[in-house]
Design a protein around this nucleic acid. Structure first.
Lengths: 226, 226
DNA sequence: ATCTAATTGTGTATTTACTACAATAATAAT
DNA sequence: ATTATTATTGTAGTAAATACACAATTAGAT
């Protein structure tokens, strides 16, 4: 019996957030065939001695210059035929970053690296559209019962930013007052003395995310649902 | 650049249910080294032209004789060193079956195939303990907001069986009356005229799972939480 | 036949969460 | 200063989740 020659790759769906523009996705323009010139998720083959997480982080930095601080395995896409050349099975990850933390640059397999608003995506190579849709669904599901999202906000932020983030991700209106009640009940935010006014309107206090209390909750299991 | 020689495998965590004994897990005894004679999850290498799902179903039937009707991808385990011989990345799946539907037999790589109560598991080969724990967590999480579990019950069942199943999986007491209210509100069960008495006590009606309504809910998204 | 233990069916308080609305306060623009 | 905009606070009605009580029905023991 000959050894199967299946290649193993990783792909990354990186969501970036900006309070003004909403959610974006990081894509690269392919330098080589197949799909030369087409847009695709950053990613590439896994090296023999590296972990999957390492492979994602490496490819991501090589191709785009982005280092993610939150990274989670999404799903493994393995249909024969998803790559026209060979059998390639891809383990997809998704990550969250503050968009403003990075200046993108393209290198190695990528001709360009760009943020696309998640409502205005170009055609994607391979089955990357499926991967992206899976990631969006997962993010939407996850944010409802686990307070992700602090990775997407500044260290100190007005409550309205958090609220907008949720409305952006969930793509629907969320009652501001009840949302705040629920979130403050969770007790993982620290309200600061400082205030900011963003444009007109009464300025709100800044909040800080309390990592300590968050870790405690994570151990004991969250009881939280938006 | 030489091609990485990473091998791709699938592993299956199959949960079986029996109202009297609770939840069991299907394990095989390994016929060959490494871990010869040790217990492990059924699984094996993926063929070049088959889908991952096909590979799981094939290996499962080859090694144990079990055909699963519910199968879902769990997680991909890819740490270098998880297999002492080579780099093997394993895509793990988990499935649910009615235990009484099968007579186990062991073949190919397996010397034996057996159900183990999930509280009394033997030592497992490779990182299969991690895989199993991940699967248990996932099952516990999933059953709380999606009415899985009908795969584990007979076609017609007294309500108490469903209740016991939940208490078994969640490993805690669940108020019988409130549980029933919540489940009946969901409106995916049909109450039959027939009654059964299991030992002493007032006999209860039998219920049937309503696949049609279930599918409708699945499309529109469940709003259900135990 | 009678009693006991086990189990199901039905119902009702009580508490908690959700939602909506109104009143008030702080700031920016004019 | 006046007005518009947005944030905060409070209140209250409604809905939902939870806890708990009790009657009804059966098998098996005596």
């Amino acid at each position: 019996m000959s050894l199967p020659t299946i290649r193993l790759a990783v792909d990354a769906v990186v969501f970036g957030y900006d309070p003004k523009e909403g959610i974006s996705v990081l894509l690269i323009q392919r330098k080589y065939d197949p799909f030369k010139g087409g847009w695709a998720l950053p990613g590439g083959l896994v090296n023999e001695d590296e972990s999957l997480e390492h492979a994602v982080e490496r490819e991501l930095e090589e191709e785009t210059g982005v280092k993610v601080d939150y990274l989670e395995q999404l799903y493994t896409f393995g249909n024969p035929g998803r790559d026209p050349r060979n059998r390639v099975v891809a383990v997809a990850y998704y990550g969250l970053v503050k968009k403003s933390d990075f200046i993108l640059y393209a290198a190695t397999d990528a001709d360009d690296a760009k943020w696309f608003h998640w409502d205005e995506l170009p055609e994607l190579a391979f089955d990357h559209k499926d991967i992206l849709e899976t990631a969006i669904k997962r993010l939407r599901g996850k944010i409802r019962y686990e307070p992700i999202g602090f990775e997407l906000l500044d260290d100190k932020f007005p409550f309205s930013d958090l609220h907008k983030l949720y409305e952006n991700v969930l793509d629907k209106e969320v009652d501001r007052r009840n949302f705040k009640k629920k979130f403050l009940q969770l007790d993982i935010l620290t309200e600061l003395e400082e205030k900011v006014s963003e444009g007109p309107g009464r300025p709100g206090s800044l909040f800080k995310f309390n990592q300590e209390k968050y870790d405690k909750f994570k151990k004991e299991g969250f009881n939280f649902e938006i």
